[in-house]
Design a protein around this nucleic acid. Structure first.
Lengths: 199, 199, 199, 199
DNA sequence: TATGAATGAGCGTTCATTCAT
DNA sequence: AATGAATGAACGCTCATTCAT
């Protein structure tokens, strides 16, 4: 086995978990399977990660961090709150609707682990809260500019609703793709968002 | 141990799975733990269920069937499509928002198992499709009566969006309750639904 | 595999540990080896014992409890403190000197585990303290009757010294039998004991 | 890392084993832990020692050789056999009673490894036999000078008894310090030795 | 000398399932 | 209908040792 740096190996291993998890779930993604997917020997996994959970946390980070950065850029570059909303939902849901199914399945699976593993919960909750905060900033911008009106709801409650829409499309896409008419997720979400925030 | 009918035992066992799953996830809900929660001996579990997966399917049914019946009644009894929408969302999301967290966690967990277990997927997908069909019938009723206008979206796409909202609130509630301002889920969902379907 | 009660199995398993430990030490006495010695399958070990350490504790008890009972009887039945001392040392050291080498090796091995495992330490310490207490009661009896005189030492310090003699013979017997001229342990120990306690 | 001579490194490594063993026992003293305690990298350990067992042998030597030399000097410098006995027991048991607990624990731990590892057994046995020989020479000197009388026991049997006392105090001190009233070990041992050898 | 990635066997433990009672 | 002992495979993880660098 050619020697590589820990950073390279860690990337390969999280990728191995992604693939193993898509096929077998988290519990079924055994160290042996992760290793096989990554083309490594099982013993090496624990040289680079202390625990299996640590791999999951690394995968969560790898899925989330680039995504949230893209979303923030899109929001920043938009000329209006409405445009920001549109491009963020588009970015999230053309993924949720049609793009990398493995990543979506992994995201949903991580969410389920987060229900009862405190450390996973902390990281996953933080991710959800960052997405929510992004939505809230867009809502606030729209309210300030007069584009939006949250009615009786707080900006935060609106942001939570938008977060729920996105997470919900992920869940449905991962479990019952046929329930979502192809290509309608982003459009329907945007329509709901505008309805939620209309003057 | 006094002998009980198979039906009573099956109910106790699915309840045991619900509780064990809330604490340990599906993989962690061992037969031993399920038995302990149900106050039974491990050997008895396999007398009433062939496999662990069969218990999960029974739990899914137990969670879903009464719920969909209630929802259908609410929709039928409503005087308008809008009122049907309101009472259905209210029924689903006052649950998703504040009611039995164990049931919500179990539902989300079952969804994740459905990603890769064909038999679970079939049952879970059918459940989602039934909820979607209910939403679609409400949308159709509203469109027919002139209350709603789905715009460029098909009735089905609108129903899928409403399904996503509900599932999304469940997921977020199960993993990061603090992300949802208390008591706003049903109201925000209704606002989105009306925006989605406004004339 | 014929079905037996837990109590029978637990006895077989502690016996398996005794034998595996004599040959491989505690760390080397793997569950697999214990099972093989006991003629059981590995999975069954953990049905009857929660942890490997629990087996060690059970073995400690099995080695110690009958022994201390015998010693107490011997002391009680003796007509004088001197005779009590003689029969107790004889009982301990004809064992330590020549009898079941596996049991002696196991005892010494358990002692070493007791250095750093708190639960083992508690049980092993209690065993040592019970032996010491027995010696102390004999010393006290002798002092009271005028047979013995502990000089500047407390009765307890004398008991500790006697305990050390016994434990020391065990250790030397387990590691370097040739260092002890055969059949001299009990006699030499008694001579030392009398010297320690002479008027 | 500045390069150091092999001899210095070997000393650091045996010291690392001593500390790791005090906390985790021999089996639990992994190369990684030894390296960490010694402030070295794991790979380097096997540059200086072929096997883990070789480190244990080196540690045994490091603990034993300086000690036996001191003891021999003390015996040589004494004006009488009795004085020799007194200073040797004092040197051994003010250690066993109160001094470096890590070294005592390590000594006892090495003894247990010696039960079943032939190479360790050889080295440990030799150490015990050298201590015994020292005691035997003191006994012989006393018998020759008329200070001592071994009675029916051989000089060797007396030496073995003294060895047992010392080893026993080590064991008890390592496992159940509270069993030994502080500061009494050397005094009680000497009283026993004199009793053993009295005219 | 020194590093730390890599190996593969083995560890204690858990598990769904079976089945004699 | 019920018990709980029994099975054997698989689990996450640790390990002494090797070796390319």
């Amino acid at each position: 086995m050619a020697r590589k740096s820990t950073e390279e190996r860690r990337k390969e291993i999280t990728e191995g978990l992604l693939e193993a998890m898509a096929e077998h779930g988290y519990a079924g993604a055994s160290i042996k399977r992760i290793a096989a997917r990554a083309g490594l020997t099982p013993g090496l996994i624990h040289y680079h990660f202390d625990t299996k959970q640590a791999i999951l946390l690394a995968l969560l980070k790898r899925l989330f961090v680039p995504q949230i950065q893209v979303l923030r850029s899109l929001a920043d570059e938009a000329n209006s709150a409405e445009q920001a909303l549109e491009s963020v939902l588009e970015a999230l849901l053309s993924t949720g609707d049609s793009a990398d199914p493995k990543a979506v399945a992994a995201w949903v699976t991580i969410g389920t682990e987060a229900i009862r593993e405190p450390e996973i919960n902390e990281a996953y909750s933080q991710a959800l809260l960052e997405i929510e905060a992004l939505f809230e900033s867009i809502v606030e911008r729209g309210v300030d500019s007069g584009e939006f009106d949250a009615g009786e709801l707080s900006n935060r409650a609106c942001a939570a609703a938008l977060l729920a829409v996105v997470e919900g499309y992920f869940t449905v896409a991962a479990t019952c793709r046929e329930a979502i008419p192809q290509g309608t997720a982003a459009q329907a979400a945007l329509r709901m968002a505008k309805g939620l925030l209309q003057r």
